[in-house]
């Protein structure tokens, strides 16, 4: 007996077409445009490395490492790392507790942390700013400005860290923990040897969802510090605003390369395959 295949075979692969189109239009094409502007001359449109040389050559008498450009990058990096760590520090226990608590309506509990996301973020940041102003730490000093930026970023990106971690923890097979217990592991040891490694995919996913936005979301830093604390996103925005598209594109490209390296180093590309936990990544 032969099975005749229908001529128009609807395979599951076809479902990926809309996503592929989305990727092409909103990721690949903009990337190509950035590449174009990064490698061409503003006046003639000729191919050049000039923009990269300009970026790294510093301004005036300063070398690149003394320039405000470099300082901005370092400052962004610091803010971003701190925000990500702080997010992780808060999000992991929260996700762990919600995932393991005995109540029935876990989704309700989770919603408590997600609902704030439904309020426009500029509004939330403004409210936080007013709160800080009332406490007296708004615009107090340069150090406070950086602290406030970190707090603002943490506040805004926290749900992005909680969600993936929560999903991975709920997916961990409870029998692993039971086995650990049977073999004599203390709860702390079981957590360190079983839960933590198995939730790595969620952590990686959360980190990558927080790290990049925290480097570029200048709306938060501008609001929280009345434009005092400058991050790399603000610099890129200024370039485009002031008709320096080539310099802006170069900066964006350097940031992108940098992100790729970081993601590669932290194993973000294969986090999923290591644990085999499917669908935990939000990407």
């Amino acid at each position: 007996m032969t099975i005749t295949k229908p001529k128009l075979h609807f395979s599951r692969k076809l479902l990926a077409i809309p996503y592929a189109i989305f990727l092409l239009v909103f990721v690949l094409v903009p990337l190509l445009i950035i590449l174009y502007y990064a490698f061409t001359n503003g006046d003639t449109g000729a191919f050049t490395f000039e923009n990269f040389i300009n970026f790294f050559s510093g301004t005036g008498k300063q070398t690149f490492f003394e320039s405000s450009r470099f300082k901005t990058i370092v400052q962004s990096l610091f803010i971003s790392v701190m925000s990500t760590l702080l997010c992780l520090l808060i999000a992991y226990p929260v996700a762990y507790i919600i995932a393991n608590c005995k109540i029935k309506n876990k989704t309700g509990l989770l919603l408590l942390f997600i609902v704030p996301m439904w309020v426009n973020f500029v509004l939330r940041i403004n409210a936080l700013k007013e709160l800080f102003s009332w406490i007296g730490i708004y615009l107090k000093s340069d150090t406070w400005n950086i602290v406030n930026t970190i707090l603002g970023m943490t506040y805004d990106f926290l749900p992005f860290m909680i969600l993936p971690i929560y999903t991975t923890i709920t997916k961990i097979d409870k029998s692993y923990l039971e086995a650990a217990k049977d073999l004599g592991a203390t709860p702390a040891r079981a957590f360190l040897k079983v839960t933590l490694p198995l939730s790595k995919a969620g952590i990686m996913s959360g980190v990558s969802m927080v790290f990049l936005p925290a480097m570029t979301n200048y709306v938060i830093s501008n609001y929280m510090t009345f434009n005092h604390t400058k991050i790399i996103g603000a610099f890129i925005d200024e370039c485009f605003k002031n008709d320096l598209w080539n310099l802006g594109s170069v900066t964006a490209l350097i940031l992108l390369t940098f992100m790729f390296i970081i993601t590669g180093l932290t194993g973000g590309f294969n986090a999923e395959s290591e644990t085999g936990a499917r669908g935990t990544s939000l990407w």
Partner: peptide, 11 residues
């Protein structure tokens, strides 16, 4: 002017 501005606004 743009590079002057980045120096000024980084403070």
């Amino acid at each position: 002017a743009n590079s002057m501005w980045s120096d000024i606004t980084f403070f």
